[in-house]
Amino acid sequence: MNIVVCVKQVPDTASERNLKTDDKTLDREAADGLMNELDEYAVEEALQIKEAQGGEVTVLTMGPDKAAETIRKALSMGADKAVHLVDDALHGSDALQTSAALAQALRKIGFDLVILGSESTDARTGVLAAMLAERLGVPQLSLAGKVEIDGGNVRVERQTDYGHDKVEGSLPAVVSVVEKINEPRYPSFKGIMAAKKKPVEKLAVGDIELDAAAVGLGNAPTQVVEFAAAPPRAAGTIVTDEGEGGAQAADFLASKKFV
């Protein structure tokens, strides 16, 4: 089983995140870079499938040089090798362009199964899995809370608001996962040392038969026109309990559709 996990380096959600004023792209220098949290679940799932079925786990990321940190983390967790798609021409690519570049890289690497987190904590478009599947012409099984490989098929429990759907598709396929699926392992110290020696292949736009004029900020079909900081949080509602406090709290929760 040849499994490719797509991972993304995102700014730490615990730090202050900003867009740059000049080109309206993410200011990667302002915050520490971390592996997108949902991608950790994707790496874990890939490793578990490999441990059960045998095979190889390749990490694929697209991002600047700094994204090598995220590759290293995935390798430390136990992935076998990595491909780093890195090229200045890719800077500012939107979801459509990113999926085109990753699809080309995936074609070059070859795969039975592609696993990725269902969305990133920075852009939060949540569309990459669908775009990749479409471009690669393979089934997409999204929002997986459980994955089973059975011969040439993959079965997932797709998480929904009301429970889950059982969905099955043939391999090769693209699967996106949610955090319910597993508990990602910590990279072991031995794994961290071993990661140093694992192969990381760097690919540029030219290596994946992609036209540089088709990617990057200047050629993006979508644009960030304007952005504004989120408004400061409004003061909360204080319920003074004069015998009716419980009911008032319940009404408040109901008005927000929490109950």
Binding site: E69, M193, K196
Partner: peptide
Amino acid sequence: SDEERQMRDTIRAF
């Protein structure tokens, strides 16, 4: 080193 930093981060996360 990269490894030391990664170990530090891992312990911190744990």
